[in-house]
Amino acid sequence: MYALTLTAELNGVTSLRPKDTEATPFWYTFTVQCTSCRETHPNAVSVSRFETNELSGSRGEANFVWKCKNCKRESSASIKIAPKPYELSEPPKQQTVIEFDCRGLEFTSFSPEGEWLAEGAESGTKFEGIELQEGEWFDYDEKANDEFMPVNPRPMLQDLVNKDIVVRLKWGETEYKGRLVSIDGYFNIQLTNAQEYIDQKFTSDLGQILIRCNNVLWIKRADEKGDVAMEG
């Protein structure tokens, strides 16, 4: 048996799972390797639990059938049950999403292509059309008492470049006020003319600083109310 496991940091959502029904099947995309000669298929392969292929010699059917070009051995994989939702846990735990009965092959890596679903942990809001190819997903739950779930910060941060902002850290009642110079691909933040405030009291002038995204609780324009939560 081959188990596809997932470890995810969920904030405000639970029951993360592939959208996998007979009407809208999910195609699980892997690289595959022959267990006999260790030859790896040059292209990614996709497996659906609602599609079957015949095994040679009238040996039945499997969801995926592959003949290794190197050793000519035929191998197969089948999905026995529907995927299990990944449930919110703190700290995040590795959980099995789906299992495959593999004969003569093994899957060596997984690409989360396709549509995923989730639900608001408190509100029950249904989230559809989730894409995980880039390893992260952000959205906003309007039913959760206007509390922020992770929101994609890129458009907001790009609009704030060359403007004065306030950055609140996750601990110590610490805030930084300054002019946003730039952000990088990991949402790390560069400020100039930065000032440090602890518990809303000015502590020091810092000049130019770099703040790592995973230290940030929220960001806002210096002249505006509200904030945007950050996850990194």
Rank of each mutant, 00 (worst) to 15 (best):
88 L>Q: 09
169 L>G: 09
111 S>P: 00
118 A>W: 02
29 T>Y: 05
51 E>Y: 01
226 G>E: 08
132 L>A: 04
217 L>K: 12
111 S>C: 04
62 A>N: 11
214 N>T: 06
213 C>G: 08
49 R>H: 04
203 T>C: 12
210 L>Q: 13
105 L>K: 05
54 E>T: 12
71 C>R: 09
152 N>C: 03
70 N>G: 06
206 L>Y: 02
50 F>I: 02
199 D>I: 01
29 T>G: 03
161 V>Q: 13
170 K>V: 07
83 P>W: 01
120 G>V: 05
130 I>P: 04
10 L>C: 10
112 P>T: 05
124 G>M: 01
191 L>P: 03
123 S>P: 02
229 A>H: 14
220 K>R: 13
207 G>E: 02
65 V>D: 08
177 K>C: 04
56 S>W: 06
203 T>E: 11
27 W>E: 01
180 L>S: 11
62 A>I: 12
205 D>G: 07
18 P>A: 14
31 T>W: 11
12 G>I: 08
73 R>T: 12
3 A>L: 11
215 N>S: 14
127 F>E: 05
54 E>N: 12
29 T>C: 03
228 V>A: 08
172 G>M: 01
96 T>Y: 01
211 I>R: 06
101 D>C: 07
154 R>F: 02
58 S>L: 09
215 N>Y: 13
143 K>Y: 03
172 G>F: 07
227 D>R: 07
164 D>M: 14
27 W>G: 00
36 S>H: 11
228 V>Q: 13
99 E>H: 10
102 C>L: 08
197 Y>L: 10
64 F>E: 15
38 R>Y: 10
116 W>V: 00
148 F>D: 12
176 Y>G: 02
175 E>P: 04
40 T>G: 00
77 A>N: 06
122 E>Q: 11
90 E>V: 10
42 P>I: 04
47 V>A: 05
60 G>N: 07
153 P>L: 00
87 E>Y: 00
26 F>S: 00
157 L>T: 08
154 R>K: 10
137 W>T: 03
1 M>Y: 07
52 T>Y: 11
66 W>R: 15
34 C>R: 03
211 I>A: 04
35 T>I: 11
127 F>G: 02
155 P>S: 00
116 W>E: 00
118 A>L: 06
138 F>Q: 01
185 G>C: 02
210 L>T: 15
175 E>L: 06
120 G>D: 03
84 K>S: 08
113 E>A: 08
27 W>N: 05
102 C>H: 00
111 S>I: 12
125 T>V: 07
49 R>T: 00
35 T>R: 10
143 K>F: 03
116 W>I: 05
213 C>A: 15
200 Q>H: 09
199 D>C: 02
8 A>H: 03
104 G>V: 12
128 E>V: 04
109 S>Q: 13
190 Q>L: 10
76 S>Y: 07
9 E>Y: 15
90 E>F: 06
209 I>S: 06
185 G>H: 09
232 G>W: 05
218 W>S: 14
162 N>D: 15
195 Q>D: 11
6 L>M: 14
111 S>N: 06
85 P>A: 01
147 E>T: 11
163 K>E: 15
61 E>Q: 15
230 M>I: 14
77 A>H: 08
201 K>R: 10
166 V>K: 09
31 T>E: 04
142 E>N: 08
168 R>I: 11
182 S>I: 02
38 R>L: 15
158 Q>D: 14
136 E>I: 07
146 D>H: 11
23 A>K: 12
